[in-house]
Structure formats: C-alpha cells, structure tokens
Design a protein around this nucleic acid. Structure first.
Length: 320
DNA sequence: AAGGGCCTCAACCGCTTGTGC
DNA sequence: GGCACAAGCGGTTGAGGCCCT
C-alpha cells in the first residue's frame, strides 16, 4: 500500500514511469475492469493488457493484482495450521523459493506465503531458538561444530534463477549446503550433506552417493542402489534425464514433505515396527540427502516446532 | 481520547531468464 | 550472437490498522 505519489528515490521505473499511470492501491472499479477483461480474453500479454482493458496501470501491476488477489483460485483468509506446517517443511526443503512453495499449497500465492513467513513463521522459529534461514539452532553451542560450519547467508539476489513457463523445481537446482543454507545448485555441482552422503545435481537429476537412493525423474520411480561411481549414471539413465516430468518431481517432493522431513523419527518408527531399513518405505528418505535434507538433530528440532500441529494428522496416518 | 510504536500485507522495485526476431 | 520485449521471481517498502500506555 504505497503512497501513489511516492517514488523510489529517482531510480528508473521501467514499467510505471509513464506519466499518467496510476500506482498504489487498486480500487474496486479497477479490479472489476481487470477481472472482467481477463475472464473474457484470458491471461497474458500483460504489457498491452492495461490499455486493452482500459486501465491506467502498468502491465506488471495488473499481473500482480491478478495473480495475488483477483484470480478465482486464490484462497483468502488465514493460513491454516496444516498449511503452516507445509510451509515450514517446504521452506526447509526449498529455502526462500516462494513461488515453488506456493506451487505446493493450493490457493496461496508466493507473495502471501512470503509475507506470512516474514511476519509469522520466521519470528516463531526465532522465538524457539531456530534460525529461520537455516532451520538450525541459533545458539552455535548446540550444534556439532565440527560438521556444521557457520551458516552462510541465503542465496543472494544476484544468483541466477531459472525461469520457465512451468518451472520445474528440479531444474531449479536445489541445494541445502552442509551449513544448512539453501543455495543455488548448478549443473554437475556436488554437495556434501550433513550426514556425509554426497549429492550430485546433474541434468535434472538428484543423486545421493553413499546413501541408498537416487531420484531419476525420467524413470518415473525412485531407484534404490548402493554406492555409485562419481558419475553415477548409466547411458539409459542419461537418456532418461531428457524427459523429466514435473509430476514425478511432484510425487518425489510429496514423499519428502509427507514422510521424510523427520528421518530420525521415521527411522525410529521403522525400527519400532521391525521393518528393514532397506525396505521400499525408506526409499524417499534415502533420497532426501540429494536435496540436502540432513538426518539428525535439525530434523528433530524441526519436528519440535510443528509436532503439536502434526499430532492429530500423524495419528490418522498411523491408523491408515 | 490521544498518540506513539508495532505489525501486517498489498504493491512496487530491481533483477533474472526465456523467447522471438 | 545481439537485442528488445515479456514474464516471473525474491526483496523491500510504507500506508493503514491495531495495540499499548
């Protein structure tokens, strides 16, 4: 809700610099014009949309208004505890990739989630002694200093971000470094996760070395395997990489979110019921290091943050 | 009731990548 | 390959509402 008359210190304003373009809060009349036009003509061509719709706004402003407020699929109202839980888990997995997080939470926008994180969740984590950027304890004495060097700052704005009409998180190259900071993972980069398993991001593939599994989108399932070579990909696997499906990653992410954010608890549960660690149920967990999910104390801490909200749901899951 | 400080969140900014020519 | 434009992203801002004294 900026003052329409305010300017940002004389810096260039690429899309709203034209004299006569309105800024600031939208009026109901403008909302009606925009929504009516998009309902008739559809989204897209934002640059020329304002003129065609009869709005004195820049295209960027129109797009933002539609995406964050007017779209029928946008859910209004408070973030539910389940959604909050999901945001926490996803942020731990993805870092400040608000659009990716929003993509996993129906009806919520990246802006809304970003705001909610900054105003609620980050403070909540801080109050519990957890660094909201790294999801690790703020007090370094509680960390294993030998294996957890000081946290790095989050990825800078200058870090290149992939963009596509239907962005695939895999192609985004997700990494959580050994310090826990989310960072951009470039193709062929190798990372060392906290449990000393090595993950390689290669052409859309996250592969856990030294662990038990890898995620190969093109294969439409998770592979279970032992130690792999530094290259780690067969010819067939290489070919598979060319047909990475977003829905497959979706399934993978779902399994991470739903089951594997808490490897210790999961393992304890498995042991309690006497199942083998090599059983299929552990496949996604073993794949977790490929996305920088460290087994250990941080997961336990995370669980403490959201355990209260999860208790009822987990009870249901166990019944199932 | 007044007013000062804090909080929330819609909107904007600056940057990036993708695409077409 | 270079350029311009379109679209999308994360970070930041600040008006308005709320709360406290």
């Amino acid at each position: 809700m900026r003052n329409p008359s305010s300017s940002s210190g004389g810096t260039k304003t690429p899309c709203c610099s034209k004299v006569g373009l309105k800024r600031g809060p939208w009026t109901p009349e403008e909302d009606e014009l925009l929504a009516g036009y998009i309902n008739r003509e559809g989204e897209g061509r934002w640059r020329t949309l304002p003129k065609r719709a009869g709005l004195l706004r820049c295209g960027k402003s129109c797009r933002l208004r539609w995406m964050n407020y007017l779209r029928p699929s946008v859910k209004r109202g408070q973030i539910a505890p389940d959604e909050e839980d999901l945001i926490l888990r996803l942020h731990r997995l993805l870092g400040n990739r608000w659009s990716l997080i929003a993509g996993r939470i129906p009806g919520r926008t990246d802006n809304e989630i970003k705001n909610y994180w900054n105003t609620h969740l980050s403070k909540k984590l801080i109050s519990q002694g957890i660094d909201p950027r790294t999801h690790k304890p703020l007090n370094p004495e509680t960390q294993n200093s030998s294996s957890n060097p000081p946290a790095k700052p989050p990825p800078s704005k200058a870090a290149p971000r992939p963009r596509s009409p239907n962005p695939s998180p895999i192609s985004s190259g997700l990494e959580e470094t050994s310090s826990g900071s989310p960072a951009i993972l470039k193709e062929n980069d190798q990372i060392q996760s906290a449990d000393n398993t090595e993950a390689v991001y290669q052409n859309g593939t996250a592969t856990a070395h030294g662990g038990e599994a890898s995620y190969l989108p093109g294969t439409q399932h998770y592979h279970v395997m032992g130690l792999r070579s530094s290259h780690g990909l067969s010819n067939e696997e290489e070919e598979d990489l060319n047909c990475c499906g977003d829905d497959v990653f979706s399934s993978f992410l779902n399994s991470l979110i739903n089951e594997e954010a808490f490897p210790i608890q999961h393992q304890l549960q498995q042991q309690a019921v006497g199942s083998s660690p090599d059983s299929d149920s552990l496949i996604p967990m073993a794949a977790a290091p490929a996305f920088g999910i460290a087994a250990g104390w941080d997961s336990a801490i995370m669980s403490s943050v959201i355990n209260q909200e999860n208790n009822s749901r987990r009870a249901n899951e166990q019944v199932e």
